[in-house]
Design a protein around this nucleic acid. Structure first.
Lengths: 198, 198
DNA sequence: TTATATTATGAACACCATGTTCGTAATTGT
DNA sequence: ACAATTACGAACATGGTGTTCATAATATAA
């Protein structure tokens, strides 16, 4: 007993299902993919799918969590001081990651993709942002004039919104440009960006 | 001949379908509503639905357009000077409109609601913002340091994102507070909001 | 290696929503 | 009143979902 998740079959099955979904999304879009499509490509019985996941959304969300583990590590490895020193922010990595998996996010973020997905990703970003900002303000001993939650969700939605727009228009600007634009908008505000004095 | 859309039956049918959808969404959510639900409540044959709309999304989108006509008029009736003079922006109306139809947008914007809906609304806001900003910069004779499209989509996504968060958390702040927060964030930027000098 | 528990299988099933067809009835504008 | 349009409803084909169950395959622990 107490043989938790060591069973090779389980790991193998889940990995195949995740890979199958990813590749199918790139070919047919998200909505068009059926559970049977997935299991067929994975060389598994359709019944097996429901042995591991509740539905298609469930599979995608768990897959994304796996994917994000890399990103989270990258972000958390750098200290706040380093971000400030670089004059960059965690969003640089976000733009890069999005560009690397452009076709995938183009579909997922289009809204065509699963219904709840985009919101989940946004909440994830917001939570990360909140942690970072909270840490930053404590180190500097300052107090934001806007509730932390409002602040973090503002950043998360604008960042994800820009990324979605950027990808859907086939990246009309480089990663560096988008990073610069976002930095100006988020940090200095639209007033200065537009060119109005104060 | 040339009796375009004057037929009472057509107008009556479409109005009933729209009203039925709206009320059903408030009761069951968006996904849970079926075409039969709609036609049943509207006292119409299911076949009739397909005589007017392609599917559920089609009906919702056309309904929203109707709803937005009011909002657009309100916004366009005020000149840029008036907005600047007030120290407000069109977003004030957006927060108010959202609050007035809170339960509806709570569902629609949750992502649970139709897949493409949220994106459409966002694009609509972005387009409106772009028109407004374009007009503003021409009057003032300034040139933004960020492409207009980037700017407008930044504003649109952050505004809609904040509204969505605000509604999903049952409006933890007043309209006035949210308006003030958004104004600070959008215009002055996060740097000043957080409390970092420059 | 053997025993036992776990997992994969595939056929079958019930279910439900979708979108279309077609002949008929009702209503409308002229 | 007449011709055109629209609403009707029953029927049908389609297709995906999620579940059940008996059976086979496979992994783990002893």
């Amino acid at each position: 007993m107490s043989r938790r998740k060591t069973d090779r079959r389980v790991l193998r099955t889940r990995r195949q299902l995740q890979e199958s979904l990813m590749s199918l999304v790139l070919e047919k879009g998200y909505d068009a993919v059926t559970v049977e499509d997935i299991t067929e490509r994975a060389d598994l019985g359709r019944t097996t799918f429901y042995l591991h996941y509740k539905d298609k959304d469930d599979l995608l969300l768990q897959s994304l969590e796996t994917v994000y583990d890399d990103l989270v590590e990258q972000i958390q490895q750098r200290t706040v001081d380093e971000w400030v020193a670089d004059g960059q922010g965690p969003w640089t990595l976000a733009f890069r990651h999005a560009a690397d998996n452009a076709r995938f996010y183009q579909i997922i973020l289009s809204g065509q993709g699963g219904s709840v997905i985009k919101n989940r990703v946004q909440n994830y970003i917001a939570a990360t942002a909140q942690r970072t900002i909270s840490q930053l303000t404590q180190e500097l001993g300052v107090t934001p004039s806007v509730p932390l939650e409002v602040l973090s969700h503002y950043i998360a939605s604008s960042l994800l919104g820009l990324i979605a727009w950027w990808l859907q228009h086939d990246q009309p600007y480089t990663v560096a440009e988008m990073d610069a634009y976002f930095r100006q908008l988020a940090m200095q505000g639209t007033t200065q960006v537009i060119g109005i004095g104060l």
